[in-house]
Amino acid sequence: MAGATNVHRSIVTTEAPWVRYTLTAIALLLIGLFLVVPLFTVFYEALKKGWALYFEAMIEPDALSAIKLTLIAAAISVPLNLVFGVAAAWAIAKFDFRGKSVLITLIDLPFAVSPVVAGLIYVLMFGAQGWWGPWLMDHDIKIIFAIPGIVLATVFVTFPFIARELIPLMEAQGSEEEQAAMTLGASGFQTFWRVTLPNIKWGLLYGVILANARAMGEFGAVSVVSGHIRGETNTLPLHVEILYNEYNFVGAFACASLLALLALVTLAAKSFVEWRAEQQEAAARRDAVE
C-alpha cells in the first residue's frame, strides 16, 4: 500500500521537493495570516480586560435583546427555508416541467444579488414611501424597522442554501427508488417520508447548518431594514458594529467572539455531518457488494 502511494505521487507530481514544500508553506502562511490570526485577535481583544468584562458585555440588556432577535430571525427563517428548499429540490430533481430552468435561476438569485439590494427591495415595497407603505401605515402594520422586516431579509439571503444543497444530491440519486415505491403501492407522502427523506437526510442537515450560520451572521440586508433601535431591532452583527462605533471595543469583540464561536460550532457540525454521510455511503456500498 505504502509503495503504491509513492509510485502514485511520483507520477502525479514531478516537482522537486523544495517546490512542493514552498508551495505548502505559502498556503499555510496565507491561511494563518488571513484566517487564524484574525480569529485569534477577536478572542484576544474580547478577553483583553478580563473575563468579568467579557461576560458583562454579553449579559448587558441590549446585547441580550440582540441575541434574542438573532435567534428569533434564525428560528423563523431556517424552518421556512427548510420546507421551501425540500419542496423546490424535490420538484426540480424528480420531475420535468416547463419553466424548470427559470425556477433554478430564481433560487440562485439571492446568491447573485448584493445583500444591500435585498434589503432595499423590502424598503421599496414596505417603506412608508413604498408600494404598500401607506396601506400598512393605515392598518398599523409594521414590517420594516421591526422584526418582520428583519425576518424577511434573513429569509431572502438564506433562500438558496438548502435547495442548492439538495438538488445535485437528489439528481444523482435518480428516481428509481421512488418509482419502485410507487409501483408497490406507496402514496406520495409515504414515498417522500420513507424513501426520499432518509436518502437525503445528511445533505439536508448540511444545508440547514449553512443556512442557520448565514441567518445568524447576516449584516448587510438586515442593516438596511433594521432602523438600528437599540434593544429593539438590533441583531447581533448590528450590535457589534454599534459597540465598535461607541469605542466599546471589549463589548464589540465579546459579541463578535460569540459570532465567531457560532462559526466554529457550525464548522464542527458540518464536518461531523459530512463524516457521517461518507460513512453511510461507504456502508451502503459495502451492502451493495455483499
Binding site: V123, A128, Q129, G133, F145, I229
Partner: peptide
C-alpha cells in the same frame, strides 16, 4: 432617510 421610509 429611515424616518422618511417609515422608522417611527
Amino acid at each position: 432617510r429611515s424616518v422618511i421610509d417609515g422608522l417611527e
